[in-house]
Structures are given as structure tokens and as C-alpha cells.
Design a protein around this nucleic acid. Structure first.
Length: 462
DNA sequence: GCATGATCATGC
DNA sequence: GCATGATCATGC
């Protein structure tokens, strides 16, 4: 049967919407099943690519040929399939980032955003969201949403400006021959995520003599995709507040934050409260955090739309009067039995351990206060966007694996201490007296990974 | 002064 | 009620 030729977006969309609340199996004739079943066994390591191929063939009636061009040549649409998982409160969240084409380090340095191969290929996306289940054949994944997304028209101007700025930041790093230092958390909405069958694969970067770099692809961050799912597809009220003044603002996230804090840097806590004309209920311990929320949103809300989309975690830190940082930075408590099953990086699926994912994808916004000697007050010194540097990832991996080893041995007295690594350690993190079960069926207090105070301190200096 | 263990306050 | 971010307490 000849390929179907699609002439308009509407025709493609009509064809796509037939999959809603159904799975692929319903589209495949019985006679083709034996071959597909045997392919499924053969391709078990690359199931996602095969899912896309099957959709093109059986849902859209297009034979798989060159994938370099747009999937629907005439309509100019790029087809994407991406997994969802169930979430208790939000119904569905994205299981992964949305991955685009590979970054060609040697070619991309000659591009501009307007002429970029990224924009050329991906400005019009047809995204099929399916509900993933690890026990099911991919033929039985149920499709939940079909979304035709025109990047330049459907995404707000602010967000597309930010995406452009992200693209430019990634390319600038590649131009500096620092492709080996790229991290998904370098940028806000568009990221450069790793993409390789195994972690040994490397690519030559621009300039020829540079250090080999991991292959990476452009991706829309999982956090950004989640926002699209909640707002555009589920039409949930996200209950977040934008930090932008109005829709015509052309600033990046960093510029908006800069503007918000400008009038407050150098003031004491007391002066800031006066300026905000606001008094918190009690002299509570998280007063600094409440002040920061107030400065950013005006209302004190702590759910900021742009921070959720970009996976930015806000941390208020207090330097000592002498400029030292006393407190380390904590991560969520881990479960011992779960932790020893995690792989730092799963070569087959590309999945990361929780700690690795936090370091690779999370951006921090540190709001830096300094204690004033002899008083209880503080001064607002400034702020710093930061993400875990790629060159320290190996050390984080070492601490992670050390923790796993000691847990497997049941040696809870010897979990990695501050003195064992310049970067990270393991320490208790729990409310009083709360214990959980270990792999050895004993009870242990809950613990988590921390980034050493001394390690963070040097990034907070201006 | 620092490392390590322990706990508080808040919001979901 | 619990997880999370923030901070305190203790001992060397």
C-alpha cells in the first residue's frame, strides 16, 4: 500500500487522534503480528525507537525511511512519542524529558538560532503521550494525549525567548570547546541531555583538539513538559505565580530575578521588612525564606511558575559574619533498600539514580544572607544561580557508590563522611526518632546526601 | 572552627 | 502526618 500523503496539519491531527484511549495493538493486522513480536524481542534495548516506527507505519501509514527529514514531509511536522506516568495529585506527569535531535558539536557552532537545525526540524511538533508501564508490551501502552505544538506560536513569547537564550548558552559553551562540561542543568527550559547507548561513547567536539565529550541532544526539560501537561492538556490550575511583571517583558529568568532583588541587596532583614511593609507572624526560623518569597512574588507564594518549569530549587543560605558557610545543603532522605537497587547511570535505559538526576538536572537559586555579628539580624548580600558542575560529577558518583557499598555491608556507622570527600557526604536527615528498615531488616535513622558546606561556599563568593 | 548528629518549622 | 528545607547542639 502506498504511503499516505498528508497535505495539512488538520489531516495529520485527525489521523493521530485515532489513538486516543487506545493502544497500538488495535492498529496492527493479525498477519503482521508474528514479525513484530519477534522484533520486540530483538529490539528490547531500543523499544522507544521501535514504538515511533510502528506508529508511523500503522497509525499514519508511512513506511520508515530516512529519519533525517521531517516525519510528515508535506505538513512539516515532527512526530514525537513520549511516556507519562501516573501521579497521585496531578493525575499524569511526564516520565522523561522530551528529547530532540543530537547536537552536532562541529556543525552547530556555525548556526544562529534563526537558522538552527533545531528550529528548522522541531518548530512544529506532534507529541503523542502514552501511559508507560514497565510490565506491559509497548503494543499495549494506552495513548492519553495528542498535542500539536507550534514552538513559535503556542509557547508564550517569554518562554520562547528563554528557550532561545538556553540554545545560545549551550552553543556558546560548545564554541568555547567546553562540550565535555555541558550539563542539563546549565540552562532553564531547553537542555542538553546525555544521549548514548553507553557511557563510554564519546564524540569529537568543535575545534578538533578538544577533549572528547559525551553525545548530547537538545531536550525540553521534564519539568517544563510537566507544566505543559498540567496546564494545556489536563487544564489543571497550576496554582503558581509568574515572576514576570507582564506578558510583554522580554527578560530572561535571570534578568527578572536581578530586577526583583536590586532594591534589597545590602539591606538588613529589618530594613527589608520595613520596605516590604510586612511583618511575618512570629519570629519564625524560616523568616528569610518568607522574605525571599515576598520579594519574588509580592504575595509570599512559594510556588513560582518559572522555577517549576525550569526545575529551580530556591535555597536561602546564611553566611557567618566572617563569610564562611556553616551549613551543608541537604537532599531528600533516601530509602536504604531502594538506594542499593539504583544505578548511578543505567546504560540500557539512560535512567539515573535519584541523586545523579538531582545533580544533573536541578538548578539552584541561592539567596545569600550574611549574619551580622552580635545581633540576630542578617544582611542580604545577593543571589546566585548555580548548578552542579560537570567536572565534579565523578566525585559525586564515587560518594554515591561508597554509600551503596557500606549500606550493602550493613555498616551504617561508616557512611561517607564530610572528611571523605571534598564534595558530598551522607548524614542523618529526619524528625526525631523516626527510623526505617534496612536491607538487613534492622532499623536505621533516615539519612540523605548533602553537598559539603565548604564545597558550596566557594561558589557563593562574588 | 569544624564535623557530625539531631531537631525544628512549615506546608502540602 | 510526613517530607523538606533550615538550623541547632555537642564534642573534639
Amino acid at each position: 500500500m502506498a504511503d499516505t500523503i498528508y497535505k495539512t496539519e488538520a489531516e495529520v491531527l485527525d489521523a493521530a487522534e485515532r489513538v486516543l484511549e487506545r493502544s497500538l495493538r488495535a492498529f496492527i493486522p493479525e498477519s503482521d503480528m508474528p514479525e513484530i513480536e519477534s522484533n520486540l524481542i530483538k529490539y528490547s534495548n531500543n523499544r522507544k525507537g521501535y514504538l515511533g516506527d510502528l506508529i508511523e507505519q500503522y497509525v499514519f501509514n508511512i513506511k520508515n525511511n530516512s529519519r533525517a527529514e521531517s516525519d510528515f514531509k508535506i505538513a512539516g511536522i515532527e512526530l514525537k512519542t513520549t511516556p507519562l506516568k501516573v501521579h497521585a495529585k496531578k493525575r499524569f506527569v511526564s516520565k522523561e524529558r522530551l528529547v530532540f535531535s543530537m547536537i552536532n558539536y562541529e556543525e552547530i557552532i556555525h548556526e544562529t538560532w534563526e537558522t538552527s537545525s533545531f528550529l528548522e526540524k522541531n518548530k512544529l511538533l506532534l507529541i503523542l503521550f502514552y501511559l508507560y508501564s514497565k510490565d506491559e508490551s509497548l503494543l499495549d501502552y494506552e495513548f492519553k494525549f495528542v498535542y500539536l505544538l507550534n514552538l513559535l506560536e503556542d509557547i508564550s513569547e517569554q518562554d520562547i525567548d528563554q528557550i532561545r537564550s538556553d540554545w545560545e548558552a549551550i552553543v556558546a559553551k560548545i564554541r568555547r570547546k567546553e562540550a565535555h562540561l555541558l550539563s542539563e542543568a546549565d540552562t532553564y527550559y531547553l537542555g542538553a541531555c546525555t544521549k548514548a547507548k553507553n557511557s563510554q561513547v564519546t564524540r569529537t567536539q568543535a575545534g578538533g583538539l578538544g577533549i572528547p565529550a559525551k553525545p548530547r541532544a537538545f531536550s525540553l526539560k521534564q519539568s517544563y513538559l510537566n507544566y505543559i501537561i498540567q496546564k494545556d492538556l489536563l487544564e489543571n490550575d497550576t496554582q503558581t505565580e509568574s515572576i514576570y511583571k507582564d506578558e510583554s517583558s522580554e527578560q530572561t529568568i535571570e534578568e527578572v530575578v536581578q530586577d526583583k532583588f536590586k532594591g534589597y541587596i545590602g539591606l538588613t532583614g529589618e530594613q527589608i521588612l520595613k520596605k516590604l511593609k510586612w511583618q511575618p507572624d512570629a519570629n519564625s526560623k524560616n523568616q528569610k525564606r518568607l522574605i525571599v518569597n515576598r520579594i519574588l512574588t509580592g504575595t509570599g507564594s512559594n510556588k513560582i511558575e518559572e522555577f517549576e518549569k525550569a526545575n529551580i530549587t530556591l535555597r536561602a543560605v546564611a553566611l557567618e559574619p566572617n563569610g564562611k558557610l556553616r551549613e551543608s545543603i541537604s537532599f531528600p532522605a533516601f530509602d536504604y533498600k531502594d538506594l542499593i537497587t539504583q544505578e548511578w547511570y543505567d546504560e540500557e535505559t539512560g535512567e539515573m539514580s535519584a541523586f545523579h538526576a538531582q545533580l544533573e538536572t536541578q538548578k539552584f537559586l541561592f539567596i545569600i544572607f550574611q549574619k551580622i555579628a552580635g545581633t540576630k539580624d542578617v544582611v542580604l548580600r545577593g543571589f546566585k544561580f548555580w548548578n552542579f558542575p560537570a567536572q565534579d560529577m565523578g566525585e559525586a558518583e564515587r560518594v554515591f557508590k561508597l554509600a551503596q557499598e557500606r549500606i550493602r555491608e550493613g555498616d551504617y556507622k561508616k557512611l561517607p563522611k564530610t572528611s571523605e570527600s571534598p564534595v558530598a557526604h551522607v548524614r542523618p536527615h529526619d524528625v526525631k526518632g523516626k527510623s526505617i528498615e534496612t536491607p538487613q531488616h534492622t532499623q536505621e535513622k533516615r539519612r540523605c546526601f548533602w553537598l559539603n558546606a565548604k564545597y558550596i561556599e566557594r561558589f557563593l563568593k562574588d
